[in-house]
Design a protein around this nucleic acid. Structure first.
Lengths: 194, 194
DNA sequence: ATGAGAATATGATGCAGGTCATAAATCTAT
DNA sequence: ATAGATTTATGACCTGCATCATATTCTCAT
Protein backbone atom coordinates (compact mmCIF):
# COMPACT_ATOMS: atom_id res chain seq x y z
CA UNK A 1 0.00 0.00 0.00
CA UNK A 2 1.66 3.18 -1.07
CA UNK A 3 1.13 6.24 0.98
CA UNK A 4 0.00 8.51 -1.86
CA UNK A 5 -2.87 6.15 -2.58
CA UNK A 6 -4.13 6.60 0.96
CA UNK A 7 -3.95 10.37 0.67
CA UNK A 8 -5.73 10.07 -2.67
CA UNK A 9 -8.44 8.09 -0.93
CA UNK A 10 -8.93 10.97 1.46
CA UNK A 11 -7.24 9.69 4.60
CA UNK A 12 -6.12 12.49 6.87
CA UNK A 13 -2.47 12.95 7.77
CA UNK A 14 -1.75 13.57 11.45
CA UNK A 15 1.41 15.10 12.88
CA UNK A 16 3.26 13.60 15.85
CA UNK A 17 6.10 15.28 17.67
CA UNK A 18 9.30 13.52 18.66
CA UNK A 19 8.92 11.48 21.87
CA UNK A 20 5.14 11.37 21.75
CA UNK A 21 3.58 7.99 22.38
CA UNK A 22 1.30 6.63 19.68
CA UNK A 23 0.08 3.70 21.72
CA UNK A 24 0.90 1.81 24.89
CA UNK A 25 0.78 -1.80 26.03
CA UNK A 26 -2.65 -2.86 27.12
CA UNK A 27 -4.51 -0.52 24.76
CA UNK A 28 -7.03 -2.12 22.45
CA UNK A 29 -5.92 -1.63 18.81
CA UNK A 30 -8.17 0.62 16.76
CA UNK A 31 -5.93 1.67 13.86
CA UNK A 32 -3.15 0.72 11.57
CA UNK A 33 -0.53 3.44 11.18
CA UNK A 34 1.09 4.39 7.87
CA UNK A 35 4.15 6.61 8.14
CA UNK A 36 4.27 9.40 5.57
CA UNK A 37 7.38 11.04 7.01
CA UNK A 38 9.48 10.53 10.12
CA UNK A 39 10.36 7.51 12.20
CA UNK A 40 9.03 5.59 15.18
CA UNK A 41 10.31 2.81 17.39
CA UNK A 42 8.32 -0.03 18.86
CA UNK A 43 9.62 -0.95 22.31
CA UNK A 44 8.72 -3.08 25.25
CA UNK A 45 9.79 -1.84 28.66
CA UNK A 46 10.63 -4.15 31.54
CA UNK A 47 9.53 -3.63 35.12
CA UNK A 48 12.97 -2.16 35.83
CA UNK A 49 12.50 0.35 33.00
CA UNK A 50 14.82 -1.24 30.46
CA UNK A 51 13.76 -0.75 26.84
CA UNK A 52 13.89 -3.46 24.25
CA UNK A 53 13.53 -2.26 20.64
CA UNK A 54 11.15 -4.61 18.84
CA UNK A 55 11.43 -2.67 15.62
CA UNK A 56 12.05 0.68 13.96
CA UNK A 57 9.64 1.95 11.31
CA UNK A 58 10.30 4.66 8.75
CA UNK A 59 8.58 6.62 6.00
CA UNK A 60 6.61 4.33 3.71
CA UNK A 61 6.20 1.61 6.32
CA UNK A 62 3.24 0.76 8.50
CA UNK A 63 2.84 -0.72 11.95
CA UNK A 64 0.28 -1.86 14.47
CA UNK A 65 -1.50 -4.43 12.28
CA UNK A 66 -0.71 -7.70 14.06
CA UNK A 67 -2.37 -6.82 17.36
CA UNK A 68 -5.34 -5.40 15.48
CA UNK A 69 -5.71 -8.41 13.24
CA UNK A 70 -5.72 -10.92 16.06
CA UNK A 71 -7.68 -8.60 18.29
CA UNK A 72 -5.34 -8.55 21.26
CA UNK A 73 -4.14 -5.55 23.25
CA UNK A 74 -0.77 -4.13 22.20
CA UNK A 75 2.18 -5.46 24.11
CA UNK A 76 4.60 -2.72 23.16
CA UNK A 77 4.86 1.05 23.14
CA UNK A 78 5.24 2.86 19.86
CA UNK A 79 7.17 6.08 20.37
CA UNK A 80 8.03 8.79 17.84
CA UNK A 81 11.77 9.01 17.15
CA UNK A 82 11.59 12.07 14.87
CA UNK A 83 8.71 14.45 14.19
CA UNK A 84 6.42 12.45 11.93
CA UNK A 85 3.37 12.59 9.70
CA UNK A 86 1.23 9.50 10.12
CA UNK A 87 -1.98 8.30 8.54
CA UNK A 88 -4.26 6.43 10.91
CA UNK A 89 -6.44 3.89 9.17
CA UNK A 90 -9.29 2.57 11.29
CA UNK A 91 -9.80 -1.16 11.68
CA UNK A 92 -12.74 -1.61 9.29
CA UNK A 93 -11.17 0.67 6.70
CA UNK A 94 -8.04 -1.43 6.94
CA UNK A 95 -9.96 -4.63 6.29
CA UNK A 96 -11.58 -2.94 3.30
CA UNK A 97 -8.19 -1.90 1.98
CA UNK A 98 -7.04 -5.50 2.09
CA UNK A 99 -10.04 -6.56 0.03
CA UNK A 100 -10.07 -3.66 -2.40
CA UNK A 101 -6.38 -3.58 -3.16
CA UNK A 102 -5.53 -6.88 -4.78
CA UNK A 103 -1.78 -6.65 -4.25
CA UNK A 104 -1.94 -5.35 -0.75
CA UNK A 105 -2.65 -8.58 1.07
CA UNK A 106 0.28 -10.32 -0.61
CA UNK A 107 2.51 -7.37 0.26
CA UNK A 108 1.30 -7.56 3.85
CA UNK A 109 2.02 -11.27 4.01
CA UNK A 110 5.56 -10.62 2.84
CA UNK A 111 6.03 -7.79 5.30
CA UNK A 112 4.89 -10.00 8.17
CA UNK A 113 7.18 -12.78 6.93
CA UNK A 114 10.13 -10.41 6.94
CA UNK A 115 9.43 -9.33 10.49
CA UNK A 116 9.11 -12.97 11.54
CA UNK A 117 12.43 -13.70 9.93
CA UNK A 118 14.11 -10.94 11.91
CA UNK A 119 12.50 -11.98 15.17
CA UNK A 120 13.39 -15.64 14.69
CA UNK A 121 16.96 -14.65 14.03
CA UNK A 122 17.13 -12.49 17.13
CA UNK A 123 15.40 -15.08 19.32
CA UNK A 124 18.05 -17.63 18.42
CA UNK A 125 20.73 -15.07 19.23
CA UNK A 126 19.26 -14.00 22.57
CA UNK A 127 18.57 -17.59 23.58
CA UNK A 128 21.88 -19.15 22.64
CA UNK A 129 24.61 -16.76 21.73
CA UNK A 130 27.04 -14.61 23.65
CA UNK A 131 27.36 -10.86 23.43
CA UNK A 132 29.94 -10.80 20.64
CA UNK A 133 28.00 -13.17 18.38
CA UNK A 134 24.70 -11.39 19.00
CA UNK A 135 26.22 -8.08 18.09
CA UNK A 136 27.86 -9.34 14.93
CA UNK A 137 24.65 -10.94 13.70
CA UNK A 138 22.61 -7.80 14.33
CA UNK A 139 25.21 -5.52 12.79
CA UNK A 140 25.45 -7.62 9.65
CA UNK A 141 21.69 -7.68 9.35
CA UNK A 142 21.49 -3.91 9.68
CA UNK A 143 24.38 -3.30 7.31
CA UNK A 144 22.63 -5.24 4.55
CA UNK A 145 20.14 -2.38 4.36
CA UNK A 146 22.60 0.42 3.69
CA UNK A 147 24.95 1.36 0.87
CA UNK A 148 28.53 0.13 0.73
CA UNK A 149 30.78 2.66 2.45
CA UNK A 150 27.98 4.20 4.49
CA UNK A 151 27.89 4.20 8.27
CA UNK A 152 25.34 2.55 10.55
CA UNK A 153 23.09 5.20 12.02
CA UNK A 154 22.51 3.52 15.37
CA UNK A 155 24.08 4.48 18.68
CA UNK A 156 25.66 1.87 20.94
CA UNK A 157 22.70 2.37 23.25
CA UNK A 158 20.30 1.46 20.44
CA UNK A 159 22.33 -1.61 19.55
CA UNK A 160 22.17 -2.52 23.23
CA UNK A 161 18.40 -2.09 23.26
CA UNK A 162 18.06 -4.34 20.22
CA UNK A 163 20.28 -7.12 21.58
CA UNK A 164 19.26 -7.09 25.23
CA UNK A 165 22.80 -6.10 26.23
CA UNK A 166 24.03 -3.05 28.12
CA UNK A 167 25.79 -0.08 26.53
CA UNK A 168 29.10 -0.91 28.15
CA UNK A 169 28.95 -4.43 26.80
CA UNK A 170 28.14 -3.17 23.31
CA UNK A 171 30.99 -0.66 23.44
CA UNK A 172 33.44 -3.37 24.47
CA UNK A 173 31.99 -5.81 21.97
CA UNK A 174 32.19 -3.44 19.02
CA UNK A 175 35.83 -2.73 19.81
CA UNK A 176 36.55 -6.42 19.99
CA UNK A 177 34.81 -7.18 16.69
CA UNK A 178 36.65 -4.30 15.09
CA UNK A 179 40.03 -5.42 16.41
CA UNK A 180 39.33 -8.90 15.05
CA UNK A 181 38.55 -7.38 11.67
CA UNK A 182 34.99 -8.70 11.73
CA UNK A 183 33.52 -5.24 11.28
CA UNK A 184 34.93 -2.11 9.71
CA UNK A 185 34.99 1.20 11.52
CA UNK A 186 35.44 4.76 10.36
CA UNK A 187 35.71 7.58 12.87
CA UNK A 188 33.93 5.59 15.54
CA UNK A 189 31.10 4.57 13.21
CA UNK A 190 30.47 1.07 11.95
CA UNK A 191 30.58 1.13 8.16
CA UNK A 192 29.60 -1.34 5.47
CA UNK A 193 32.69 -2.72 3.81
CA UNK A 194 32.72 -3.34 0.06
CA UNK B 1 -6.82 -23.79 4.47
CA UNK B 2 -8.25 -26.95 5.76
CA UNK B 3 -6.41 -30.12 5.17
CA UNK B 4 -9.27 -32.08 3.62
CA UNK B 5 -9.57 -29.46 0.89
CA UNK B 6 -5.98 -30.11 -0.10
CA UNK B 7 -6.56 -33.83 -0.24
CA UNK B 8 -9.68 -33.12 -2.27
CA UNK B 9 -7.57 -31.11 -4.66
CA UNK B 10 -5.36 -34.13 -5.15
CA UNK B 11 -2.32 -33.23 -3.11
CA UNK B 12 -0.38 -36.28 -2.03
CA UNK B 13 0.14 -37.10 1.62
CA UNK B 14 3.66 -38.05 2.60
CA UNK B 15 4.69 -39.92 5.75
CA UNK B 16 7.58 -38.82 7.95
CA UNK B 17 9.01 -40.86 10.80
CA UNK B 18 9.82 -39.43 14.21
CA UNK B 19 13.19 -37.63 14.27
CA UNK B 20 13.43 -37.24 10.52
CA UNK B 21 14.45 -33.82 9.31
CA UNK B 22 12.07 -32.07 6.92
CA UNK B 23 14.44 -29.24 6.11
CA UNK B 24 17.63 -27.68 7.36
CA UNK B 25 19.03 -24.18 7.65
CA UNK B 26 20.52 -22.98 4.40
CA UNK B 27 18.17 -24.95 2.16
CA UNK B 28 16.24 -22.99 -0.40
CA UNK B 29 12.48 -23.26 0.34
CA UNK B 30 10.49 -25.15 -2.24
CA UNK B 31 7.33 -26.14 -0.36
CA UNK B 32 4.86 -25.20 2.29
CA UNK B 33 4.05 -28.07 4.63
CA UNK B 34 0.55 -28.86 5.89
CA UNK B 35 0.36 -31.32 8.76
CA UNK B 36 -2.42 -33.87 8.44
CA UNK B 37 -1.40 -35.86 11.51
CA UNK B 38 1.54 -35.79 13.89
CA UNK B 39 3.75 -33.03 15.21
CA UNK B 40 6.98 -31.25 14.29
CA UNK B 41 9.27 -28.80 15.99
CA UNK B 42 11.12 -25.92 14.37
CA UNK B 43 14.49 -25.37 16.02
CA UNK B 44 17.66 -23.43 15.54
CA UNK B 45 20.85 -25.02 16.80
CA UNK B 46 23.80 -23.02 18.05
CA UNK B 47 27.42 -23.75 17.22
CA UNK B 48 27.69 -25.52 20.58
CA UNK B 49 24.76 -27.74 19.68
CA UNK B 50 22.13 -26.16 21.89
CA UNK B 51 18.60 -26.27 20.50
CA UNK B 52 16.20 -23.36 20.61
CA UNK B 53 12.58 -24.22 19.86
CA UNK B 54 11.18 -21.56 17.54
CA UNK B 55 7.81 -23.26 17.39
CA UNK B 56 5.86 -26.48 17.58
CA UNK B 57 3.34 -27.36 14.87
CA UNK B 58 0.55 -29.90 15.09
CA UNK B 59 -2.17 -31.49 12.97
CA UNK B 60 -4.09 -28.87 11.01
CA UNK B 61 -1.28 -26.35 11.05
CA UNK B 62 1.23 -25.47 8.37
CA UNK B 63 4.80 -24.26 8.38
CA UNK B 64 7.62 -23.12 6.16
CA UNK B 65 5.81 -20.28 4.42
CA UNK B 66 7.74 -17.21 5.60
CA UNK B 67 11.10 -18.24 4.17
CA UNK B 68 9.41 -19.30 0.95
CA UNK B 69 7.46 -16.07 0.63
CA UNK B 70 10.44 -13.82 1.06
CA UNK B 71 12.66 -16.16 -0.89
CA UNK B 72 15.37 -16.64 1.70
CA UNK B 73 17.02 -19.87 2.82
CA UNK B 74 15.57 -21.44 5.95
CA UNK B 75 17.30 -20.49 9.16
CA UNK B 76 15.91 -23.34 11.25
CA UNK B 77 15.60 -27.09 11.20
CA UNK B 78 12.18 -28.64 11.15
CA UNK B 79 12.26 -32.02 12.85
CA UNK B 80 9.47 -34.57 13.26
CA UNK B 81 8.42 -35.03 16.91
CA UNK B 82 5.96 -37.86 16.29
CA UNK B 83 5.37 -39.94 13.16
CA UNK B 84 3.49 -37.60 10.85
CA UNK B 85 1.54 -37.32 7.62
CA UNK B 86 2.38 -34.14 5.79
CA UNK B 87 1.20 -32.57 2.55
CA UNK B 88 3.91 -30.73 0.66
CA UNK B 89 2.57 -27.90 -1.45
CA UNK B 90 5.03 -26.55 -4.00
CA UNK B 91 5.75 -22.85 -4.17
CA UNK B 92 3.69 -21.99 -7.23
CA UNK B 93 0.79 -24.17 -6.09
CA UNK B 94 0.89 -22.32 -2.79
CA UNK B 95 0.66 -18.96 -4.51
CA UNK B 96 -2.27 -20.27 -6.52
CA UNK B 97 -3.98 -21.43 -3.33
CA UNK B 98 -3.71 -17.94 -1.89
CA UNK B 99 -5.40 -16.51 -4.98
CA UNK B 100 -8.02 -19.19 -5.45
CA UNK B 101 -9.13 -19.48 -1.85
CA UNK B 102 -10.59 -16.14 -0.89
CA UNK B 103 -10.40 -16.68 2.87
CA UNK B 104 -7.02 -18.25 2.92
CA UNK B 105 -4.92 -15.13 2.63
CA UNK B 106 -6.71 -13.50 5.54
CA UNK B 107 -6.27 -16.65 7.60
CA UNK B 108 -2.59 -16.68 6.71
CA UNK B 109 -2.22 -13.05 7.74
CA UNK B 110 -3.75 -13.87 11.11
CA UNK B 111 -1.55 -16.92 11.55
CA UNK B 112 1.55 -14.87 10.85
CA UNK B 113 0.32 -12.19 13.25
CA UNK B 114 -0.11 -14.76 15.99
CA UNK B 115 3.39 -16.07 15.50
CA UNK B 116 4.73 -12.52 15.58
CA UNK B 117 2.89 -11.91 18.80
CA UNK B 118 4.49 -14.93 20.42
CA UNK B 119 7.95 -14.04 19.18
CA UNK B 120 7.67 -10.44 20.32
CA UNK B 121 6.61 -11.62 23.74
CA UNK B 122 9.53 -14.04 23.99
CA UNK B 123 12.04 -11.51 22.66
CA UNK B 124 11.10 -9.11 25.43
CA UNK B 125 11.48 -11.92 27.94
CA UNK B 126 14.83 -13.14 26.68
CA UNK B 127 16.18 -9.62 26.37
CA UNK B 128 15.08 -8.23 29.71
CA UNK B 129 13.76 -10.74 32.16
CA UNK B 130 15.28 -13.22 34.55
CA UNK B 131 14.73 -16.96 34.53
CA UNK B 132 11.73 -16.97 36.86
CA UNK B 133 9.83 -14.28 34.96
CA UNK B 134 10.61 -15.85 31.58
CA UNK B 135 9.33 -19.18 32.72
CA UNK B 136 6.13 -17.81 34.19
CA UNK B 137 5.32 -15.87 31.04
CA UNK B 138 5.90 -18.89 28.81
CA UNK B 139 3.97 -21.24 31.08
CA UNK B 140 0.99 -18.90 31.24
CA UNK B 141 1.02 -18.54 27.47
CA UNK B 142 1.10 -22.30 27.00
CA UNK B 143 -1.57 -22.93 29.64
CA UNK B 144 -4.01 -20.64 27.82
CA UNK B 145 -4.17 -23.30 25.10
CA UNK B 146 -5.27 -26.21 27.25
CA UNK B 147 -8.35 -27.08 29.29
CA UNK B 148 -8.70 -26.12 32.93
CA UNK B 149 -7.37 -28.93 35.09
CA UNK B 150 -5.22 -30.42 32.36
CA UNK B 151 -1.45 -30.72 32.58
CA UNK B 152 1.16 -29.07 30.36
CA UNK B 153 2.60 -31.67 28.05
CA UNK B 154 6.11 -30.23 27.86
CA UNK B 155 9.20 -31.58 29.61
CA UNK B 156 11.49 -29.26 31.59
CA UNK B 157 14.00 -29.74 28.79
CA UNK B 158 11.51 -28.42 26.26
CA UNK B 159 10.65 -25.45 28.46
CA UNK B 160 14.39 -24.82 28.68
CA UNK B 161 14.72 -24.97 24.91
CA UNK B 162 11.90 -22.47 24.50
CA UNK B 163 13.25 -19.98 27.04
CA UNK B 164 16.96 -20.21 26.34
CA UNK B 165 17.57 -21.55 29.83
CA UNK B 166 19.10 -24.84 30.96
CA UNK B 167 17.15 -27.81 32.32
CA UNK B 168 18.55 -27.38 35.82
CA UNK B 169 17.47 -23.75 35.85
CA UNK B 170 13.99 -24.65 34.65
CA UNK B 171 13.68 -27.38 37.28
CA UNK B 172 14.69 -24.98 40.04
CA UNK B 173 12.53 -22.21 38.58
CA UNK B 174 9.41 -24.35 38.35
CA UNK B 175 9.83 -25.40 41.98
CA UNK B 176 10.21 -21.79 43.01
CA UNK B 177 7.14 -20.65 41.07
CA UNK B 178 5.18 -23.50 42.53
CA UNK B 179 6.29 -22.76 46.09
CA UNK B 180 5.23 -19.15 45.58
CA UNK B 181 1.84 -20.31 44.42
CA UNK B 182 2.30 -18.73 40.98
CA UNK B 183 1.73 -22.03 39.20
CA UNK B 184 -0.19 -25.11 40.21
CA UNK B 185 1.36 -28.56 40.15
CA UNK B 186 -0.09 -32.03 40.21
CA UNK B 187 2.14 -35.07 40.45
CA UNK B 188 5.12 -33.18 39.06
CA UNK B 189 3.14 -31.76 36.14
CA UNK B 190 2.19 -28.10 35.70
CA UNK B 191 -1.58 -27.87 35.48
CA UNK B 192 -3.96 -25.13 34.50
CA UNK B 193 -5.81 -23.86 37.55
CA UNK B 194 -9.48 -22.96 37.34
C1' DA C 1 34.81 29.19 18.66
C1' DT C 2 32.56 27.54 22.84
C1' DG C 3 29.96 25.24 26.21
C1' DA C 4 26.40 21.78 27.34
C1' DG C 5 24.56 17.47 26.56
C1' DA C 6 25.10 13.13 24.36
C1' DA C 7 27.79 9.32 23.24
C1' DT C 8 31.80 6.59 23.93
C1' DA C 9 35.32 4.63 26.92
C1' DT C 10 37.43 1.93 30.79
C1' DG C 11 38.22 -0.16 35.29
C1' DA C 12 36.45 -2.75 39.48
C1' DT C 13 33.13 -5.68 41.63
C1' DG C 14 29.09 -8.82 42.09
C1' DC C 15 25.83 -12.30 40.95
C1' DA C 16 22.40 -15.09 38.12
C1' DG C 17 22.55 -18.74 35.76
C1' DG C 18 25.66 -21.91 33.27
C1' DT C 19 28.37 -26.06 33.91
C1' DC C 20 29.55 -30.44 35.87
C1' DA C 21 28.68 -34.38 38.65
C1' DT C 22 25.78 -37.55 40.67
C1' DA C 23 21.45 -39.47 42.16
C1' DA C 24 16.52 -40.31 42.60
C1' DA C 25 12.17 -40.80 40.56
C1' DT C 26 9.12 -41.85 36.46
C1' DC C 27 8.03 -43.74 32.36
C1' DT C 28 7.98 -47.51 28.81
C1' DA C 29 8.28 -51.76 26.64
C1' DT C 30 8.63 -56.52 27.21
C1' DA D 1 7.19 -57.24 37.47
C1' DT D 2 11.50 -55.70 35.83
C1' DA D 3 15.23 -53.38 33.36
C1' DG D 4 16.64 -49.62 30.77
C1' DA D 5 15.83 -45.10 29.36
C1' DT D 6 14.13 -40.73 30.18
C1' DT D 7 13.06 -37.07 33.23
C1' DT D 8 13.48 -34.66 37.47
C1' DA D 9 16.35 -33.35 41.33
C1' DT D 10 20.22 -31.23 44.04
C1' DG D 11 24.76 -29.56 45.33
C1' DA D 12 29.34 -27.08 44.24
C1' DC D 13 31.86 -24.31 41.46
C1' DC D 14 32.77 -20.94 37.57
C1' DT D 15 32.11 -17.21 34.29
C1' DG D 16 30.19 -13.61 31.25
C1' DC D 17 27.88 -9.84 31.60
C1' DA D 18 25.45 -6.44 34.57
C1' DT D 19 26.32 -2.86 37.56
C1' DC D 20 28.49 1.19 39.33
C1' DA D 21 31.67 4.89 39.06
C1' DT D 22 34.23 8.08 36.62
C1' DA D 23 36.52 9.96 32.46
C1' DT D 24 37.06 11.36 27.80
C1' DT D 25 35.48 12.46 23.28
C1' DC D 26 31.84 13.93 19.97
C1' DT D 27 28.10 16.81 18.36
C1' DC D 28 25.85 20.74 17.31
C1' DA D 29 23.26 25.03 18.64
C1' DT D 30 24.32 29.56 19.66
Amino acid sequence: MEIWRLIEKGFAVKKFRKDSIIYEPGMQPKNVYFIKTGEVRMVTISDEGKEFIQGVFKAGQYFGEPALLINRPYLAYTIVNKDSEIIQVAKDRFFLLIEEEPDFSMALIKTLSNRLFYKSMMLEELANEKAEHRLLTLINYLLADIEVGNALRFTRQELADMTGLRVETVIRGVKLLSSKGLIKMDKGKIVRAM
